[in-house]
């Protein structure tokens, strides 16, 4: 009990000191990640998409048609300048349909 209180006070004063100054804050991002799951085109998709974002960007979307996924891939290339080769666009779109698609 006493130890807990002491630890609490130590923590409280440490926080108070931090609160008064603006020093270096370092965080370590969790290694938690959402991977691209196996399927045809997985390697091409990983090579083109994972540089910028996790696969959660795919799996949390509502299921999309091939046309909609193609539009998303094109948006990544045109708006965000992902260097996706023409030949890879349909490969990635087909893969995304297998992962989270609809007719």
């Amino acid at each position: 009990m006493k130890g807990t209180l002491l630890r609490f006070l130590t923590l409280a004063s440490a926080v108070a000191v931090l609160g008064a100054t603006y020093g270096t804050v370092s965080i370590k991002f969790p290694t938690f990640n959402v991977p691209f799951k196996p399927g045809p085109g997985q390697d091409v998709t990983i090579a083109n998409c994972r540089t910028c974002h996790s696969a959660a960007y795919v799996y949390t979307q509502p299921p999309l048609t091939k046309a909609q996924w193609t539009a998303e891939v094109i948006k990544m290339r045109n708006a965000y300048k992902a260097p996706i080769a023409d030949a890879d666009v349909p490969t990635i779109a087909d893969y995304l349909v297998t992962q989270n698609g609809k007719q």
Binding site: F29, P30, H53, A56, T60, P62, P63
Partner: peptide, 26 residues
């Protein structure tokens, strides 16, 4: 309450467990 609405709860640094939409970028 949406299709594909299951999300993990993960504590990022300086945070309690929150609903992870995407881990990177967070």
């Amino acid at each position: 309450p949406m299709e594909n609405g299951t999300r993990p709860l993960v504590a990022f640094p300086q945070k309690r467990p929150l609903i992870v939409l995407t881990p990177r970028p967070p």
